[in-house]
């Protein structure tokens, strides 16, 4: 059976949800090989095996440069397992790993993929979800998979640990000289969250974002913002949803006071359910709404939170 390599995406020393989704996807294509790197990698082998890893490659050393060691290991794994497909998470580090690996092993890259077909072609939404393209890759297909594209389903694999001898590369490298911990958010990661609550110009001010945060916390979701709101300085740039920010595809997207410029729609229109609250009945985002309320977010949101809490009580 053909081998499909999955680079484990990890956070806080554990496999992330997209890793389990990629292993599930890989099982449908062949025999999954999990490559797990970073401190504590050994401890994650069992989890990868629960989700179908037939083979496991472990490298528990801490990374000394961003993605470099992962590329070395994946290149060695592609050769050892004679693999034609490599799956990585479609996040910043995953995409860079994909790019370097494709050059290293002679292959091509598809990013933001939501699926891989049995014939090896990858399926990817483009223009923010307005179109879907199917891409064929000559050589090794390095495919970056978007979180929440497929359900993760456990199915035990053999989990045979395979030792690969991968010497340190003699290439000129970057070096991580310090890691600075910032403020940790109690909210889920924007790109991978099941629920995203975003605010726009209609929130009126930075203070208005307190309401966005309250609803996000009530729904256990992440906070997002339109470009108009981040450009106005009401919320940090890294929370921007849209063409030049983060692309999200949650189970639920709630847009508060966002008119829906094409720039914004491109970052959220593949969301499974969309709720829009806007004073302006003509706001283009209502076209994407599964449920819309024409009204002021400053009164709708408190009423909504109160009703959710009343029913929970």
């Amino acid at each position: 059976m053909t081998n499909v390599i999955v680079l484990a995406d990890r956070a806080d020393g554990a496999l992330t949800k997209v890793t389990l989704e990629m292993l599930t996807l890989a099982r449908g294509l062949g025999s999954p090989v999990a490559v797990i790197t970073g401190p504590g990698a050994d401890a994650d082998a069992a989890r990868a095996t629960e989700y179908g890893a037939a083979s496991v490659v472990l490298d528990p050393a801490a990374a000394t440069e961003p993605v470099g060691r992962d590329v070395d290991l994946l290149a060695a794994a592609v050769a050892h397992f004679n693999a034609a497909t490599v799956l990585v998470a479609s996040n910043a580090a995953g995409k860079e790993t994909a790019g370097r690996l494709a050059i290293r092993v002679g292959g091509g890259v598809v990013t933001d993929a939501v699926g891989v077909n049995a014939d090896g072609t990858a399926v990817q939404p483009i223009f923010g979800g307005a179109m879907t393209v199917t891409t064929r890759v000559a050589g090794v297909a390095v495919v970056a998979i978007r979180p929440s594209s497929v359900p993760a389903e456990p199915a035990a694999g053999a989990g045979t640990v395979v030792a690969l001898d991968v010497p340190a590369s003699d290439r000129r490298r970057a070096q991580i000289t310090a890691s600075v911990e910032g403020q940790r958010s109690s909210r889920p990661d924007l790109a991978a969250a099941d629920v995203v609550v975003s605010g726009g110009r209609g929130m009126g001010s930075a203070d208005g974002f307190a309401l966005v945060e309250q609803l996000a916390d009530t729904l256990k979701g992440a906070v997002g913002a339109s470009r108009a709101a981040t450009d106005a300085g009401w919320y940090p740039h890294r929370f921007q949803v849209g063409q030049t920010g983060t692309t999200v595809s949650p189970q639920l997207y709630v847009a508060l006071g966002i008119s829906g410029a094409i720039q914004h729609r491109a970052g959220m229109q593949t969301s499974k359910a969309v709720v829009v609250v806007n004073k302006d009945r003509e706001a283009p985002l209502f076209e994407l709404a599964d449920f819309g309320i024409v009204g002021d977010a400053s009164t709708v949101v408190p009423a909504l939170i109160a009703e959710i809490e009343r029913r929970r009580a």
């Binding site: 002679g106 307005a130 199917t134 064929r136 969309v274 449920f291």
Partner: peptide
């Protein structure tokens, strides 16, 4: 190495409740 084999417009969303 990559070539697009097929492209379709995404299915349009049904009209929601406003």
């Amino acid at each position: 190495p990559t070539s697009v084999a097929a492209a379709q417009p995404a299915p349009t969303r049904g009209a929601g409740v406003i």
